[in-house]
């Protein structure tokens, strides 16, 4: 296989990664890393660098549409970005103090449990009335409300359990700083399970935030030489149209289907994390 064919194959895989990443709010990286490392035999450091590029491209490309259409909530996004960026910094500093292997296993188990909760939440109450219940005084104070479009008009919502959501977001940032992966998964889960936001608002607002989280690590990755132009080029050029296609599709997608795709990817990530923790590296 020559470089041309190789580039074309990575481009195709990245197209799929961008599509799924923008629909689920997980970012393209979650698929790009295993694809490059296991499928193409790329060194994990180059794969991590390309994954970072994939996350930023998915996030910015799809957010352009999601923000304009009123899916992503800019205020909720900004509020939670404070928690994740702080957490990411603390996490990056703690790498020397903690065993990443055991954290990896714990994180994997959290994801399995969350996948279970995600399915249960959908089976119990469907997707009809998210955010109904007593209003959180913090949500009112910080105006953490909004409405998002559905085929028949728009539905308004209000965040709940704001303080817990903020704390989990801090943990999500710390985990991604420690492990360099999985910030999107925790972000969607915190908004969906804890803050009780509609699923599409959770995924698109996560999509809005992950670009900033990833940009924070970009400097170090560039400096360490992890970002390879020959590899990142097809990844970025594939992920971007994939993300734009995903953003177009989201409007019509049923939340139930999105949740199924999301849960499947999260479970795959969970097993990857547990496996990594047990074996020590991919």
């Amino acid at each position: 296989m020559n470089t041309f064919e190789w580039t074309l194959l990575i481009w195709l895989g990245s197209l799929v990664a961008g599509f799924l990443g923008s629909l689920t709010g997980l970012g393209g990286g979650i698929i790009v890393v295993p694809m490059l490392a296991l499928g193409f035999g790329v060194d994990i450091r180059y794969a991590a660098g390309a994954s970072l590029i994939a996350v930023i491209a998915t996030s910015s490309g799809a957010s352009a549409a999601y923000v304009k259409e009123g899916f992503s909530n800019i205020r909720i996004g900004t509020f939670l970005e404070v928690a994740t960026t702080l957490g990411a910094l603390v996490g990056a500093f703690s790498t020397a103090l903690l065993s990443t292997r055991s954290i990896s296993i714990i994180f994997g188990m959290i994801l399995v449990y969350s996948a279970f909760l995600s399915i249960r939440r959908w089976r119990e109450q469907g997707e009809i009335s998210p955010g109904s219940g007593p209003a959180d005084p913090w949500a009112i104070r910080l105006k953490l409300n909004g409405c998002y479009p559905v085929p028949a008009g728009s539905i308004s919502y209000q965040a709940q359990n704001v303080a817990t959501g903020f704390a989990i977001m801090f943990g999500a940032g710390a985990l991604s700083g420690l492990l360099g992966i999985g910030s999107g998964a925790m972000k969607v889960l915190a908004m969906d399970q804890t803050m009780r936001l509609p699923f599409k608002v959770s995924t698109t607002t996560s999509n809005f935030m992950i670009g900033v989280t990833a940009a924070a690590s970009a400097g170090i990755y560039l400096h360490l030489g992890y970002i390879d132009p020959g590899l990142s080029m097809p990844v970025m050029l594939g992920v971007l149209p994939g993300a734009l296609l995903g953003a177009r599709r989201l409007v019509f997608a049923r939340p139930r289907d999105l949740r199924v795709i999301f849960t499947a990817i999260i479970l795959a990530l969970a097993f990857e994390m547990i496996y990594k923790g047990l074996r020590g590296g991919l």
Partner: peptide, 20 residues
């Protein structure tokens, strides 16, 4: 470089001009 074989199984890191 299209016709040359790809080379990503090891890690050399990028040359310094592509890192700053």
């Amino acid at each position: 470089y299209g016709a040359a074989p790809p080379h990503y199984n090891g890690f050399q890191g990028e040359p310094s001009d592509l890192r700053s």
